[in-house]
Design a binder for these strands. Structure first.
Lengths: 354, 354
DNA sequence: TTTAGCACTCGGGGAAACGGAGTGCTAAAC
DNA sequence: GTTTAGCACTCCGTTTCCCCGAGTGCTAAA
């Protein structure tokens, strides 16, 4: 059967009405909404066709129609209009992202919160490292009689520090020497290589020096591990409850459990990297808990070496037009903000203007 | 009327049964649970007395009794036994708190998650600065042709860094000079004083140098502001839904909204600092959303200058014995971990053993 | 091909009926 | 005086039943 222009208009009207109201849409309502000058009976015939084609579904015989997963898919691929962001919204996004001291992790966390607020749905986000991260340099700063700060900077320009206590104190030349050893023998290495290098150094250095070196190196290894680990953040899980499909707790709970369990440092939602934006509708999700749930995600770049994915979770009756518009703007902003190779990750744009 | 020993045992049996089952407790059940060798009729008489005394309530005429807020209060103050933590549990807490690179903020965030997991209730936590925090020292590290890292250390031993870009490059002596100015003129000052000091320095330094100084100082001001700000974290909000009193969404939603709104950087739950542990039962809470909800909180020290409060939120039918036991162990661990003045906040205990 | 008309379906919601747990009271027993 | 058995009563939660109405699919006419 052919999908005529009229059928498309009807489908679109149904999808949009259902998105707005969460109520099955009857033929009479469609007759008005679609702006077609035909009677409800005609619409009924068309709707029967659309149902036959698998684009619509009937909760029960005497109810209106709701879109099926394929119906949504068609809507998303072909019928959905471009949603414009209002000035206010772009402003709000920009304000929120213009953060100060914040580090990578916290920027992402915050970004999720903002996106969740403006989209009315829960949001998850995660980062992954494309390539191997290594330490670019070490700095050691004496701060007290018996403590120094180890500053580690990775080749992705992430900087972390840690205070290290030393009961015995340390002279400037000693510190200098440590620094030299660290910078010459423990840069540009993978985590595994670092561990090996540590063994080598153990042989020709004093026990005391070795102890300090290994403390710094272990810290560096942790930093690298921390970066590599795929971390998942979620925000606004509660928003699920605002949508009628989750008013029955049975529906909401599995999903909420799933989302709030960010211990499982990996969210089993595959992202197809060949496209910037992924939309998974209902049963297209692999995961069982997402059978009636859609996920819209976008990726953004964090420098050259890392990538982030940020996604919105909601009922299949999600306002795809609105969500995709916000999400893509958001992902673009993040990419721009992380400066794609020009700027180290956790630095904000103010730094350009010095 | 006098509160005889028997009445106490009955009250305790009722509270504990209700905590366990969330079902009103009938006289027959009490007869068994309380281990008193009397008939249900006797218990009924006693229960009528307890109801008259305001310690029990009857949801409706033909239902069993449930504890009233004052009933819980009495239970908490007098009847509740000490709950022992199992080895496993202490182990779990210890493992979870033994964190590596993590900073203050993240430690607290994580602590909340762990506590929420082991207590089965949502948890909130916040920190506050007792006194004024100032910068103790600055370090500047050249990392590239055109960028340096500013490392700021506060007198509470929190260390933060930021990469600062400079289009023109900078010689070593220049950097040295900047560092000297910063360390001599911008340490030990409050945020307001720093802003003023900046004005003064503006007069007798070159525009270029001033630009850089002000960037570092502004960063420092942000750091101080960040620390002072009362930040609230919440964890495990979803756990609310696991408890039957929140199975109706009407009950759960206001509370969840309240808890998840950590934009309101201040949780309006007063903490009485004169005691280490605070328990607020149902109507004892000021906030309307907490009418049927109890809050158990404990404070812990973060160094000398900061204090944290971590609290558990649940239905009035909360397992107070279990929660208080875990919470106090937890708060103690945190205090110990933050080393009360000996150790800078975001450093873990490994550092002792060098 | 569209439309009016109509019988039919089926879910949601309200009213009514039921069952049972638990109470309070009374009167007897200890 | 206190405890206990017995019993009538209350009232909630559940189930059952029935009705209403929205919406459909079909038929026949325009």
């Amino acid at each position: 059967m052919e999908l005529t222009e009229r059928k498309k208009r009807i489908l679109r009207a149904i999808v949009e009405s259902y998105i707005a109201t969460a109520e099955p849409v009857g033929s009479k309502a469609v007759a008005q909404l679609a702006g077609l000058d035909v009677s409800s009976a005609t619409i009924r015939n068309e709707m029967a066709d659309l149902t036959e084609m698998g684009l619509l579904e009937q909760p029960h015989t005497s109810a209106g129609r709701i879109p099926s997963a394929t119906g949504y898919r068609l809507y998303v691929n072909e019928l959905m209009g471009e949603h414009q962001l209002s000035m206010q919204e772009t402003q709000r996004i920009n304000d929120a992202l213009e953060m100060k001291i914040e580090e990578l992790d916290r920027v992402i966390d915050r970004a999720g919160k903002v996106l969740s607020k403006i989209s009315d749905y829960p949001v998850f986000s995660m980062t992954e490292v494309k390539d191997i991260v290594t330490v670019r340099r070490y700095d050691l700063l004496m701060v007290e009689e018996n403590a120094f700060i180890a500053v580690v900077m990775t080749d992705t320009s992430v900087v972390k520090n840690k205070i290290i206590r030393i009961p015995d104190g340390l002279s400037d030349p000693q510190l200098q020497m440590l620094s030299t050893i660290l910078n010459s023998s423990f840069t540009g290495l993978s985590r595994e290589q670092m561990a090996q290098a540590l063994d080598k150094v153990a042989d020709h250095s004093t026990p005391g020096a070795f102890r300090l070196i290994s403390m710094v190196v272990e810290f560096a290894i942790e930093v690298l591990g921390e970066l590599r680990r795929q971390t998942v953040h979620t925000a606004g899980i509660t928003q699920l409850l605002e949508h009628p499909e989750y008013k029955s707790l049975d529906k909401a709970k599995p999903l909420m459990r799933f989302l709030s369990d960010d211990e499982t440092a990996q969210l089993p939602i595959p992202f197809d990297g060949s496209q910037n934006m992924n939309i998974l509708i209902g049963p297209e999700n692999v995961n069982e808990a997402f059978r009636d749930t859609s996920v819209v995600m976008a990726s953004y770049d964090i420098g050259d070496n890392m990538r982030g994915v940020i996604g919105v979770v909601g009922p299949t009756r999600m306002d795809y037009a609105k969500v995709t518009a916000r999400l893509s703007y958001f992902a673009d902003s993040l990419t721009r903000m992380f400066g794609k190779g020009e700027l180290p990750a956790p630095v904000d744009k103010d730094d350009f203007e010095t």
